[in-house]
Amino acid sequence: MARKLRKRDVEVVKTHLSSPWASFTAIVLATIWTIPTFGLFVTSFRPSTGINSSGWWTVFTNPEFTFTNYTRVLFEGRGATPPLSQYFLNTFAIVIPSTIIPITIAIFAAYAIAWFDFKGRNFLFFTIFALQVIPLQMSLIPLLQLFSGGLHIGSFTVIPSFGITGTFIPIWLAHTMFGLPLAIFLLHNFIAQLPRELIEAARVDGADHFKLFRQIILPLSVPAIASFAIFQFLWTWNDLLVALTFGGGKREIAPLMVRLAEMTGTRGGDWELLTAGAFVSILVPVAVFFALQRYFVRGLLAGSVKG
């Protein structure tokens, strides 16, 4: 592998590569990226009358803050409205399986398409790629029909209805179906790039596909899985459409997004609540991103891939 470097050389190289200008540019970009969100953050602490009559940057010269927006988002709701904690719980109950199931299935399929030799695998791969563009709205009605009534041809029942309407199961299944094409596409790209020698060597050692997958592919794919898991997590976290459609209108299983959308008010002008709500819902995803970041650490793959 490359040439042997003396220790001193390596250090010279490292400091060269971490140029202060690069860091400075990155920080400037990150700041620009954050200004709009920061505006939202400031706005979420402003009273509604202020929001509508002056720009958010004026608070620095003319401070006027309130926690009302947050208390309303977090605690408002009476009688039949369940507390926000229930919606958080529902969101987790939706998001966790809706992330684990599609990724598991997708990594299997990605491996099969990348390393099994069978006719038409390219065709299959590009069909799956193209499936990404199918608008999810076009699948809502047929899927809902399937979940609520099963599948019948004439009087013959192909798939019974199972009575799963009103549970989390249709939501999990729908998220799995809609998440698969992109998951397979991204994970395939990663798995297909693993060095052929590695796989062939294992095959020669007598490992079957199952062992090979379990002992070599899976451990190597952790960063790719982590990257994709974050995105699948976010999409399901922020999803409104699937939860609304497949939740069967049941409040007991509605996630946070449904509640926030409901809270925005019939008049649609309650920005102060939307701003606070947006920040309440952003906390968990950002925390997850921080938590999973260590999976992206440099060198995790170095030496095992390419090189």
């Binding site: 990226w33 954050t34 969100t37 939202l40 995105f231 976010l234 976290w237 922020n238 409104l240 997004m257 926030l260 959308a261 925005t264 939307l274 701003t275 709500g277 947006a278 819902s281 952003i282 995803p285 950002v286 991103f289």
Partner: peptide
């Protein structure tokens, strides 16, 4: 962070 913000937000 923007990825974590819903479309409404």
């Amino acid at each position: 962070m923007p990825m974590a913000i819903s479309f409404v937000g």
